[in-house]
Each structure stands twice: as C-alpha cells, then as structure tokens.
Design a protein around this nucleic acid. Structure first.
Lengths: 205, 205
DNA sequence: TGTGGCTATGCAATATTTTGCATATTGAAA
DNA sequence: TTTCAATATGCAAAATATTGCATAGCCACA
C-alpha cells in the first residue's frame, strides 16, 4: 500500500489538494512513483477516513473549490513506522525487453524503431533531470537533510536514465544489422501498416 | 495485459508447464518481469481458453503430472501483432526513494541500514548477471538474432545494477553524516525495536 | 519418525491499478 | 465563437496482482 505512503510523504512537506498531488506525481515523486488522479483521489478518501490525514475545503471564486489535505499526528506516526519496516527491492517490468525476447521471429525493423523512440524519450528525461539538478542541487554536500532525500531521488533518476540511454545505443547497434539483413533477404513478416486508431485497444488479449 | 505476452514469448522458445514458467519468471524473463505462480496459472487458463496456447497433460510416475503448454498459430499471430504496437516506457516504483523523501524527519540510521541492505542485494545480483554474461554471452557481436534479444535483456540488467550499486554508495555517504549527527545530538525518534513478526501485515494502512 | 524442501497445480478473497466516463468554470487561442 | 487547455473532483467497471490457503507425493536429513 505504498501509494498511501507516497502521498503521506508529500503531505509531510506541506498540505496538498488532490489536484496538487496529481501534478506532483507527474514530477518529483512521480520520477519513481506514478499514480493517476483517480487513484490519488480514491486513496485520499481512504486516508481521510482512517484519520491519517484531515481535509479542509478551500473555497475559490475564480477556480473550482479545492479540498486541501494535511497530515494528522496519527498519519505522521503511521508514516514513520512504515519507514522503519524493511523495504523490498522493486521489480521492473520492461515491455520492450519482453518484445526483444522475440527477436528471433519478430521484425527487427519494428523493434529498432521502438528502441529509437525510447532513446529519444530517455534523452529528454535525462536532460530534464540534469537541468533540475543544476537549478536546485548544484552542491549536494551542502544540502539540508530534507533536501538530501529529494536530491537522492533525482540522482538515481539521472543514473537510470544514463544507463537506459546507453543501453538504447548499444541495442540499436545490435539490432540494426538484423534489420538490414532482413531487408536484403526480402522476408517481410507482415504487410499491414502500423496504423493505430487511438483509443481502441484489443480486448481479447 | 503484458503478463500474457511475457508468457507467450517464453513459449516461443519451447513449450513450458506452469511450473517451468514460474521458475523462468524467477530468472531470465524474471529479471524484468516478475510474476507469482498463482498469476501464471491463472493466465495460462485464460490463454488456453482464448485459443492462443494449447495444453497437453504429461503423465509422470515419480513426480506430479504436468500440464505443458505450447503456442498455437493464433497465439503466434497475437504475439507478433502485439509486438508491432507501440511500447510505453515503464514506471519505476521505488519505495526506498519514497522513504528517503522523509529524510528530514525520519531516523537517518534506519534508512542508512536499508541502503546498506540494498547495496548488498544489488551487488549480488550484479555479480550473478555478470556471471551469466560470461558463461553464455562472451562475444555479443557473434550472437544469433534470438540470443541477441536475451543478451540485451541481461545487458540492461547489468547497466541497471551498476547504477543502483553506485547510487547506494553515494547515498550512504550522503546519509551517514546525518545519522552520526543524530547520535551526537541524542535525538532518538522512536525507542521501539524493529521487530517484524513474519506473516503479519498492517491492515489499516 | 517427523520436519522441511522440491515438484506441481489450483481456488478464493482482497487489494491495487487502469480505463472510461462525468461535471463545471475560466481564459486563451484559432 | 467555437474549441481547446487548465483547474478541480469524482464514480463505476474491469483488469491485474497479491496474499493466504489447500493438496499431495517424493526425497533427504536428523
């Protein structure tokens, strides 16, 4: 139930509305913990019900009203005893690697294209992280305790992205010979163009 | 529904029983896709029902009987059209980083200990990956297409583990000054010993 | 002779996450 | 002037994942 805890640590910094949290989970915390707004709102209701956070309605005239949540003493305790519990290493679920496992029979060109898209994505994210790093944590040794925690999150992000970028480059050079070979031997696996109607999704599988 | 596909790519190599798959998901594929045996058995039933795989009961006298599954033509098609679909980058969920976000108020010694355990874990895993690398993929440039896919999975594993190991080291040197400072200022957050009754789990949070 | 581990499969209940939909206002752009 | 993006919150259904439990024989160890 770690989403609850991710919300609680966010509230440790300062009170947030669900909307705030949803945005925050698209940045900072979101670098290593994703959550949709639906999930956040649901979790906030649960947390409020169990007394770990308290809600306050803030009336706004220009914008829709907000419900701002803050930690209760109970919530702080719960958070800190959770922190004392042992932490399990996460499991990565990399769809792209699953696909690469089928490199023997799949069309290398398709996978090469996917790898290229990923390279771009991770380069962008790396650049973003590095920029935040420059702007907010130029001298890590001088940071306060609280900021060190945030810094270390970002730091792992940087290291990860660097790895993935490098991997994408290596993967490109290992897959592209297969793709060009496939072109030469003219053995197209499938002629259907990769048209994706956005919004549709296969139901059966 | 990527578990289904992770199963299908495994079956692409050769037929497997649920038990085989569960073990495989603790190795190779499991490096980047975890699944429990319950989930695997459930998924196998679904896949068999939708005709993507076929089941065959293998009678054994010494051991319990096994049910061996293999891909059908339908299954192969489904797998390959899934591969053509765009792939989303995964989201990492790192509990430890969530905890580190509370570094301002949490006990640094506890987190330092967790980081230490993680360092050990990832060093072990890195060593294991490197050993498999040596044993099975000594010269990546000479690998067949099929093996290249497997190699690239392992390769990302190595890069990841190297990053995390490095991060753990950096994190240790950034958190330990806080821990010793806390000892000096004698400000224990909680006196309760970190006893964990195995099998119990908090229900409310 | 009991205890535990490995092989092998599975059900049921709960928890978590995703997907789709719904509502309502403001301000800026086309 | 319609359309789009942003602000703000939420419900319901379906898909996925986790947790606990059950069965059952064989083998090794003490």
């Amino acid at each position: 139930m770690a989403l609850a805890h991710a919300i609680l640590v966010s509230l440790l910094d300062r009170p947030h509305s669900g909307y705030d949290l949803a945005k925050r989970f698209d940045q900072t915390v979101g670098y290593f913990w994703k959550a949709s707004h639906q999930q956040i709102y649901l979790e906030l209701h649960k947390l409020a019900e169990s007394g770990l956070i308290s809600a306050e309605r803030v009336v706004q005239d220009v914008r829709p009203n907000r419900i701002v949540y803050q930690l209760t003493a109970l919530g702080e305790d719960a958070l800190h005893s959770w922190i004392e519990e042992p932490t399990e290493p996460p499991s990565y679920k990399e769809e792209l690697l699953v696909k690469l496992f089928a490199l023997g029979t799949a069309d290398p060109a398709v996978l090469l294209n996917e790898i290229g898209k990923r390279l771009h994505f991770h380069e962008q994210r790396l650049a973003h992280y590095q920029q935040v790093m420059q702007a907010h944590y130029p001298v890590p040794e001088k940071l306060s305790a609280r900021k060190r925690g945030h810094y270390l999150g970002l730091r792992l992000g940087v290291l990860f992205e660097e790895s993935v970028v490098r991997w994408c480059q290596e993967a490109t050079s290992m897959v592209s010979p297969l793709a060009s070979a496939a072109v030469k031997s003219a053995k197209p696996r499938s002629a259907k163009p990769a048209i994706r109607k956005t919004g549709t999704r296969r139901k059966t599988l």
